[in-house]
Write a protein that binds this DNA or RNA. Structure first.
Length: 587
RNA sequence: GGGGGCGUGGUGUAGAGGCCUAACACAUCGGCCUGUCAAGCCGAAGAUCGCGGGUUCGAAUCCCGUCGCUCCCGCCA
């Protein structure tokens, strides 16, 4: 790290350097003035070193140190000395640098917030001065972690015989999936490029091209509303392999996840290895969610059979009309007020209400205590309900019951502190449905994407019962977050056309929009499949953050703006003329 | 498109109809101080409480609108 300005970084010096003369360069983190003695903590990305300026020993250095303020850039020359009393909180805490020369390299205005302090700052403020925000220890650590994860993944894939290939950023818009970001073409006015939502088609073409094992750390773009875990532009580790089945892809990625975690967050335990595999159907049934958080229990049970002949009209009629009665058991008792608050959660997701039974001091009470009396032993056994526990029940259409109770489960897991934030709970979610019915459009939609292969056992169902067809797809879920998703692809143009037809894409449209892919499949397409990591989310979890903005250097606000650059911004009308564009007045 | 939360000196917060001539901490500026490390002590400056309207004798506080940030639903193959 030695350069014209420094011999060491600010995180480098240790006891063994004592006696050496060194030069450091960095930012003034903090200054402590004691009369004839000034301590300056000099910081760079690598750490913090205490510099001592003694008026008696080095009057010039002392005079400079007396002038400088926070975040000034300084250069310090001096001897490394052992400290009288070390600072165990600091990597360089055993030493200090006795300044012989202090130079002001560049002064700084008083910063708009304290870089040296870890505060919960207003995000607009942080983004406006992102270059200062990134100086803070937390962000420097996150950027470093992100880099190490990228480097690890590249190295691991390289060692497994993959090659990294870049694919175009200016591509063709297709009707499937998210809203595209469009780029007008100057040379072909009135036509548009689209930014890639993922390199999906290109990587499949690369398989036809014989590239065998491809990966790319790929920027992807989707013009949808932003969230804590969603940005317009995000990064995928995009992987595609030829001559593989689902197990090949999952095994490779599982080992990478494990090795990665052990390398970059060695002190965080992985809950279960090998990763458990759970079908989509089971995840919905037990967790009400296609990305279950396995760090805590409280799984759902189905009580439909217990109430099929019940006198309780609400439950009975739910069962009769094909709905579900789902329950979770919570190892706690709640006040009526608390139950009311929890009920609001399930109502927000469509449930009519939240029924509950509490077992307290040998008594059974709660909104439906009277009605569960007949079936109480069976109910308690199924849910493992003991004294001091509360059972929450939602009776509704199956999807509503699972969804709302699943949300309640997550809420309680967090609110009751049942989650160890340190733990890493991976699982593979497998065999999701290939299609889901789109009621608005009166057609089937791909659950994953339209190139996902149907399970071989279900191909015969494509014609008669598309909703029952399982996909050869798999998602990696970590702590309730989808961190990767992939599938085995269709490599047969006939099956592909059949799927397009079900999606409401007629032959002419398929030719226009996917002709290149269908053509390619007629020139010897190898069986292939792959996966894409949601890279930002993965790093977010490893960093212990709850927003991907914390692991992206220059993110957008949830309104899609960048307070630093002022993007998006109007452009001169001459630029629009060149593109043949005209801005319509707002309606 | 919809729902919730927040917006008070540079920063983070307190104040929730009259105790507000707006409090505290950090930062800033001046002074003291030779072993601190979130240094300490003394002092100073700094806010028409996001913006606009309304209610009221009286609004940081209540109401409406608007802007910004944020969380969630929809959306995200």
């Amino acid at each position: 790290m030695q350069t014209a300005y420094r011999t060491h970084t600010c995180g480098q010096l240790r006891r063994e350097h004592v006696g050496q003369t060194v030069t450091l360069a960095g930012w003034v983190h903090r200054r402590r003035e004691h009369g004839g003695l000034i301590f300056v903590d000099v910081r760079d990305r690598h750490g913090l070193t205490q510099v001592v300026c003694d008026q008696a020993a080095a009057p010039e250095a002392y005079a400079r140190a007396a002038e400088i303020g926070s975040e000034w850039v300084v250069q310090v020359e001096g001897a490394v000395a052992a400290r009288f009393e070390g600072n165990p909180d600091l990597a360089t805490g055993e030493i200090e640098v006795r300044a012989a020369v202090v130079r002001v390299v560049n002064a700084s205005k008083v910063p708009p917030f304290e870089v040296a302090r870890d505060l919960n700052l207003d995000e607009a403020q942080r983004l406006r001065y992102r270059y200062l925000d990134l100086r803070r220890e937390r962000m420097a650590r996150n950027m470093d972690l992100r880099h190490r994860v990228t480097a690890f993944v590249r190295q691991a894939l390289n060692e497994h015989g993959f090659i990294e290939i870049e694919t175009p950023i200016l591509t063709r818009s297709t009707p499937e999936g998210a809203r595209d970001f469009l780029v007008p073409s100057r040379l072909n006015p009135g036509t548009f490029y689209a930014l890639p939502q993922s390199p999906q088609q290109m990587k499949q073409l690369l398989m036809v091209a014989g590239m065998d094992r491809y990966y790319q750390v790929a920027r992807c773009f989707r013009d949808e509303d932003l969230r804590a875990d969603r940005q317009f532009e995000f990064t995928q580790v995009d992987i595609e392999m030829s001559f593989v089945d689902e197990d090949d892809v999952m095994a490779l990625n599982e080992q990478m996840f494990i090795d990665l975690c052990r390398a970059v967050v060695p002190d965080r335990p992985i809950r279960q290895v090998p990763f458990p595999r759970m079908t989509y159907a089971e995840a919905m049934r037990r967790y009400g969610n296609d990305k279950p958080d396995l760090r805590f229990g409280m799984t759902m049970e189905d009580l439909g059979d217990l109430f099929a002949t019940s006198d309780f009209a609400v439950f009975r009629s739910t069962v009769d009309s094909g709905g579900a009665i789902k329950a979770i058991c919570v190892p706690r008792l709640f006040s009526r007020k608390e139950v009311g608050e929890l009920e609001e959660i399930v109502k927000a997701f469509g449930a009519g209400g939240l029924a509950w039974v509490a077992f307290e001091n040998g008594e059974t009470r709660g909104s439906v205590a009277k009605w569960v009396a007949d079936v109480e032993p069976a109910l308690r056994e199924r849910l493992g309900a003991a004294d001091g526990h509360t059972v929450f029940i939602v009776a509704a259409a199956r999807k509503v019951a699972e969804d709302s109770l699943g949300r309640l489960r997550l809420h309680l897991g967090e609110a009751l502190g049942l989650i160890d934030p340190h733990e890493l709970a991976f699982l593979w979610l497998i065999a999701p449905p290939l299609f889901e019915w789109n009621d608005d459009e009166q057609r089937w939609d791909s659950v994953h994407h339209p190139f996902t292969a149907p399970h071989p056992d279900d191909v015969s169902l494509l014609a008669g019962d598309p909703g029952a067809v399982r996909a050869m797809a798999y998602d990696a879920v970590l702590n309730g977050v989808e961190v990767a998703g992939g599938s085995i692809r269709i490599h047969d143009s006939a099956v592909q056309q059949h799927v397009f037809a079900l999606l409401g894409i007629d032959e002419a449209q398929a030719r226009t929009e996917f002709g290149h892919l269908l053509d390619a499949f007629q020139y010897g397409a190898p069986p292939h499949g792959g996966i894409a990591w949601g890279f930002d989310r993965t790093v977010m979890i490893l960093a212990g953050e709850s927003s991907i903005r914390e692991v992206i250097a220059f993110p957008k606000t949830v309104a899609g703006t960048d307070p630093l650059t002022g993007a998006p911004a109007p452009v001169p009308s001459a630029n629009l003329d060149l593109l043949g564009l005209k801005v319509a007045p707002r309606t």
